[in-house]
């Protein structure tokens, strides 16, 4: 296999909170292959957005990257000076935020915002910038006559298309999209995901898609990383992770998620309890308090991320028993009382 576009190794990100610190991301390692979409999936507070932001190094004022490497095309972008990092942003690594309304300036036309990026960061002259702006609008399927419009004149879906156009302005190699379709209705959501997939394939770029929705992962991603409480639970090819999950958390997520193609009589099974408070996480596996399969060792030792099938890695002490656990996990009664 060719060398990945980005290798994240043992990434740690801490937030300073009320005198102490909280490790929002505690040792995340994964690769982003070239020309693929990677889904970073997990629930609120699992650290997925923090990982995504750490890669751009635009993080909250009270956050700090406290360890690990992020090798992007041979360079550790965790270690380079801010000036050098800034030169990579937008040109090599671009960001699509959840709500395009927050990233677009309401008092300027989208044309002037595209021009600013293309001319200031891209070094284009006025004419080249205009041609590129029109090309970008065509790429994302908006009539170029709308370049002169202000952000509020666009619908939510159209604004998200503008945000995609802005992110692609300077031909980045990696696009990080943070819940890009969460605020949109299903029909628009589907159309935006189709657009994203089409552009990704056409341009041969890599995309990290941050989402809480495993059906979005199933729809567009090639690989997926499942996070829980600041750590990676499972990582692998999308199809393997969703159809043959090896981590009990992933198995539980599947049970809790409604499936319109599934039987009507199906019951959704919740995972009892709530994720741990990261200010005082449990020792051992962080999922152990909610896991129906937890053993004594799980409450004591942190399970390492091990590769068990080709490109499929999992952090679970009982991963070798995954086929058996999967059979138990589909039964509702398994999840009724956590061990």
């Amino acid at each position: 296999m060719t060398e990945p576009l980005l290798s994240v190794r043992n990434l740690k990100v801490s937030y300073a909170v009320g005198g102490g610190s909280v490790d929002a991301v505690d040792g995340a390692s994964f690769d982003v292959p070239r020309g693929s979409i990677l889904g970073l999936v997990g629930e609120s507070g699992c650290g997925k957005t923090t990982v995504a932001r750490a890669i751009t190094r635009v993080i909250a004022d009270n956050a700090r990257i406290t360890g690990g490497e992020m090798i992007f095309e041979g360079t550790d972008i965790a270690a380079i000076p801010e000036r050098q990092m800034n030169a990579l942003r937008w040109r090599d690594i671009a960001f699509i935020p959840q709500s395009a309304m927050n990233s677009l300036d309401p008092v300027y036309t989208v044309e002037s915002q595209l021009h600013e990026v293309l001319r200031r960061r891209g070094g284009m002259d006025r004419r080249a910038a205009q041609a590129r702006a029109e090309e970008l609008f065509e790429m994302v399927g908006i009539e170029k006559s709308r370049l002169r419009d202000y952000p509020h004149q666009f619908s939510g879906g159209m604004r998200q298309r503008v945000a995609i156009a802005l992110a692609l302005a300077l031909n980045p190699k990696l696009v990080i999209a943070d819940e890009p379709v969460t605020a949109l209705d299903v029909i628009v959501q589907r159309q935006i995901l189709d657009q994203l997939r089409e552009l990704q394939a056409m341009l041969g770029i890599s995309v990290i898609l941050v989402t809480h929705d495993i059906s979005v992962v199933a729809y567009v991603c090639d690989r997926t990383v499942v996070m829980y409480a600041g750590r990676i639970a499972e990582e692998g090819p999308m199809e393997a992770v969703l159809t043959r999950p090896m981590h009990p958390y992933t198995m539980g997520l599947r049970n809790a998620f409604p499936d319109l193609k599934g039987a009507a009589s199906g019951t959704l099974t919740p995972i009892e309890g709530a994720p741990p408070n990261l200010a005082s996480p449990p020792p051992g596996c962080r999922f152990a308090p909610r896991c129906p399969f937890a053993l004594e060792v799980c409450t004591r030792a942190q399970p390492p991320l091990r590769e068990l099938a080709s490109g499929h890695r999992v952090a679970c002490h009982r991963a070798d028993e995954a086929p058996v656990l999967r059979e138990l996990a589909v039964r509702t009664e398994t999840w009724l009382v956590p061990a």
């Binding site: 959501q189 589907r190 929705d213 495993i214 729809y219 969703l242 159809t243 319109l260 193609k261 599934g262």
Partner: peptide, 11 residues
């Protein structure tokens, strides 16, 4: 338009 949590779905 409703996405499903399964790899095989119509695109």
């Amino acid at each position: 338009a409703v996405p499903v949590p399964q790899p095989d779905q119509s695109h």
